[in-house]
Design a protein around this nucleic acid. Structure first.
Lengths: 178, 178
DNA sequence: GAACGATGTATCGCGGCGATATAATCACCT
DNA sequence: AGGTGATTATATCGCCGCGATACATCGTTC
């Protein structure tokens, strides 16, 4: 997931760690944190896997005095891997925390995959909604006031999300046959 | 967090692992998963810490034939620990995933702590809301259509959550001076 | 000139998850 | 009587991501 996000960002341009984190933060800050505690280990993992490489030290031009920073760029295998992750978009793609990340890279995502992700996400949210609905209407085993309140709020918000997804899907469809 | 949930459940009655997980699942299934992969390790952690103990084997009455199951109950230290976790309710308490869990145990939570948690949560959601608002109104650096859509939806849903929290808080206040 | 906040890289331990193994019991069908 | 599958039940493994923390440099402000 983090892997996906980093590959996605490096797809746009080579970058160093701190910048990756910053871009990620103001792209998705409200939805996913992405701390340094995973950033650097993940970068090294990607590097070991040959998906990214440290770019040669072509600075020196202007900005030395700057400071030791390592600029990474995608290798061909990295690009391939990113495409593969998109193609294999499956169940875990539409989890709460994955979905936002994938949305953020939608402009880089083929139209058919976009559709698959949106519909997968919708099904997933609909399932949650049904669970909540069932739990709320089920009489018997009297349910704690606060828990009930939590479920009410959850139900309402999943309903809204489904409506929102429907709009996105409709828009997608209309664009598809334009 | 998981620790808090388990102590909270065992506060009601002694139980074995599977049952804990089931109760948790239909109490909070839509909000938090709580897999077996954390359940049993956490139980052992609690046990090592002396917060829970395996209950003596007073079955044999009816139900042998059943099958090896370990019933845990809270020790006095366990109860103390739970109270302590409530008293120390701090910033991490109002994270997305903690908050729901704490709500589920609100009937067991002192009124002043309830208030603190609700207000903390509200502040937290308000901050997220402001972040989203700022990001959306900020012109410049044209923002990807899908990301904008994500932020719009996020903004709307945080606004609704704040309103919901306000209602809860108001209700709490009205009850307080009844 | 010192204090502070941003830039920048990095590690450590831990909490939680998904996948997986194992096994007995129960309900149902044939 | 036998098979099949769902449910009850405990448990481990490796991985991912987080929060805390450390450290060093840079630019700005008092």
């Amino acid at each position: 997931m983090f892997e996906f996000a980093l590959l996605g960002l490096l797809h746009e341009a080579p970058m160093h760690g701190y910048e990756l984190r910053k871009r990620l933060h103001d792209l998705l800050g409200a939805f996913r944190a992405f701390s340094y505690g995973s950033l650097y280990p993940t970068l090294r993992r990607l590097q070991r896997a040959g998906l990214i490489v440290e770019e040669g030290p072509e600075e020196s031009a202007l900005s030395w005095g700057r400071r030791a920073r390592k600029v990474y760029k995608l290798t061909p295998e990295g690009k391939e891997r990113f495409a593969e992750l998109l193609a294999n978009a499956g169940p875990q793609t539409w989890d709460d925390d994955s979905f936002g990340v994938h949305l953020a890279f939608f402009s880089r995502t083929p139209a058919d995959v976009r559709m698959r992700i949106l519909e997968g996400r919708r099904r997933c949210v609909e399932e949650r909604r049904e669970g909540l609905r069932e739990r709320l209407t089920r009489t018997g085993e009297q349910i704690d006031r606060y828990t009930r309140e939590l479920h009410r709020q959850g139900l309402e918000s999943t309903e809204r999300e489904v409506r929102w997804l429907n709009e996105l899907i409709a828009h997608e469809k209309s664009e598809q046959d334009e």
